[in-house]
Design a protein around this nucleic acid. Structure first.
Lengths: 226, 226
DNA sequence: TAAAAAACTTAGTCTTGCTTAAAAATAGTT
DNA sequence: AACTATTTTTAAGCAAGACTAAGTTTTTTA
C-alpha cells in the first residue's frame, strides 16, 4: 500500500517481470535481464512475495500480483513517457533516450508525470512504438505482428521496434527502419535466415533475430470487399 | 577522478558543505541540515576525506577541496537548472520546484544538463534568484544585500529569496515578494523586529528572520554623478 | 527410472549509509 | 587551572541489495 516503501530496485524487478511476459518468469531469465546473480533474484523475489507484489513459489518461477502489476505499469509509464518527452521536447534521438529514462523513471513525481503527459497530449505510444500504460492501468493495444511472420512481397508499415540497444537503434534509424516507415518484405531466407527489406531509400538485409523485434501492420487490405 | 563512484548521498554532503559557507563547517551543522545523526556525518566525512574531496581534521570541521568543490557546483548547477526548467518549460510555481529538483539533480546526465541549459538560453539565475554555477565552475555574482541591511524609505528591487520551504515561498509569491518585484522598505522595527514593506499592491509586515533571506538592490542611485 | 545436468535456493560476506550508546576531545566557567 | 558542559568521534549493529560457494530440487537423458 505505501508506495514510498518500494525501492528503485524493486521497481526494476517488477517492471522486468512484466516485460518478460504475462506467464510465469524463471529466476535465471530475470537474472540475465537484470544483470544480477540468480541468488540475488531469489532474495528479491522472497521480499516481493512478502510484500504481496508477486506470486512466487520456490523453484517454480514468479508472476505479478495485481498490486505488483500496477507498480510495474506505473514504472513503465514513467519510462515511456520520459522517452517520448526527451524525443519530442528535448530533441533526443530515439537511440539516446533509453539510458536516461532508465534512471529518471524512478525519481519523477506523479505531478511531473502528469505535466509531461499533458504537454505531450496524452500519448499512447512512445518513439519505439511501445504502448504507454495509462494512469488507470490500461495498456493501449499493439496490433502489429513481427516482420518474420509476414509474407514476401507484402507492403507493410512499421509499428514498433522492440530493441533497446542504442547502437542497433541508431543503425535502424539510419536505414529508415522506424515506426511509421513503409517497407516491402522482399525475401525471407529459409532456416531462419536473414530477411531482405526494401525501404523508401534502399534495400537492406536484416538478421532473423533482429527482424523478429520489428513489428509491422499490413498497409492496406486490398483483396477483400470495399 | 571517477565520477561514477560518487553517490547521491556524497553529492548531498558536498553540496551542503558548499552552501553552508566557504569557511569550515561543523559536524553538527551538517547533521542538522541533512537530517542525519552527527555520527553519520563523521563517517561520511572520513570517506570524503579519503577520496580527497574535503579537507577534514578530526574535531575541527570540514571544508571542500578543489575536486569536492567542483562536484558541489555541478550538483548545484543541476539543481538550479532543473528548478529553472520546471518553472519555464513545465509551468511549475516556484514553491513546487525544490523537492522535484532535489531528487532529479542526482540522476540527470551531462547531456540532459546541456540540453536544458541550451533550451533555457544558458541562464545565470534560477527562479529564486540563486546563481546557477556554470559548466566551467564559475559562479555568477550576486550583487544584492539582505533587506534587513537597507535603510527605511528606500525603493528596492528584489534580486533573490534564499528560502526553500514551499509554504513560505507560496506566501511570499502571493504578496509579490519575488525576484524582480519593486518594493519600498517603510519601517524597520527595533531589536530585530518585523519590517514593514510596501509592494505594488499592499503593505506587508515581515519577520526579521524572513526579511534577512530576501536580497535586494537599490533601484537606482540618484545622489551621485551620472 | 536412475544417474547426470541444469536450475534454483540457502548460507555466509561485503558495501553503503544509516542508527544508538559510550568514550574522547574541545570549549566554557569559575 | 580544574571541572563541567558541549561537541565530536568510536564502536557495534541494522537493512538493503548485491556477491560467491555450497547444497537442494527439478529436469533431462541415457
Amino acid at each position: 500500500m505505501d508506495k514510498r516503501s518500494i525501492s528503485s530496485s524493486m521497481e526494476d524487478y517488477l517492471k522486468t517481470i512484466f516485460e518478460l511476459g504475462e506467464t510465469s518468469v524463471k529466476t535465471q531469465t530475470l537474472a540475465e535481464e537484470l544483470s544480477v546473480s540468480s541468488a540475488s533474484v531469489t532474495g528479491m523475489l522472497k521480499k516481493l512475495s512478502d510484500l504481496k507484489l508477486v506470486h512466487y513459489e520456490r523453484y517454480h518461477g514468479v508472476s505479478l500480483s495485481k498490486a505488483g502489476r500496477l507498480i510495474a505499469l506505473e514504472t513503465l509509464r514513467h519510462h515511456r513517457l520520459i522517452e517520448t518527452y526527451l524525443t519530442e521536447a528535448l530533441g533526443y534521438s530515439w537511440h539516446e533516450v533509453h539510458d536516461e529514462a532508465e534512471k529518471l523513471e524512478h525519481h519523477i513525481s506523479e505531478d511531473f508525470e502528469d505535466r509531461i503527459a499533458e504537454l505531450l497530449g496524452h500519448p499512447t505510444y512512445d518513439p519505439h512504438g511501445d504502448p504507454i500504460p495509462q494512469r488507470d492501468g490500461s495498456v493501449p493495444v499493439s496490433l502489429g505482428k513481427p516482420l518474420t511472420e509476414q509474407h514476401e512481397q507484402e507492403t507493410l508499415v512499421i509499428t514498433r521496434v522492440k530493441e533497446q540497444k542504442g547502437d542497433v537503434l541508431k543503425y535502424l534509424a539510419e536505414h529508415q527502419l522506424i515506426p511509421g516507415s513503409e517497407i516491402t518484405l522482399i525475401q525471407k531466407a529459409p532456416f531462419n535466415g536473414p530477411l531482405t527489406i526494401k525501404t523508401s531509400r534502399q534495400t537492406v538485409a536484416l538478421a532473423f533475430e533482429l527482424a523478429k523485434l520489428i513489428e509491422v501492420e499490413r498497409l492496406a487490405v486490398l483483396d477483400s470487399s470495399s
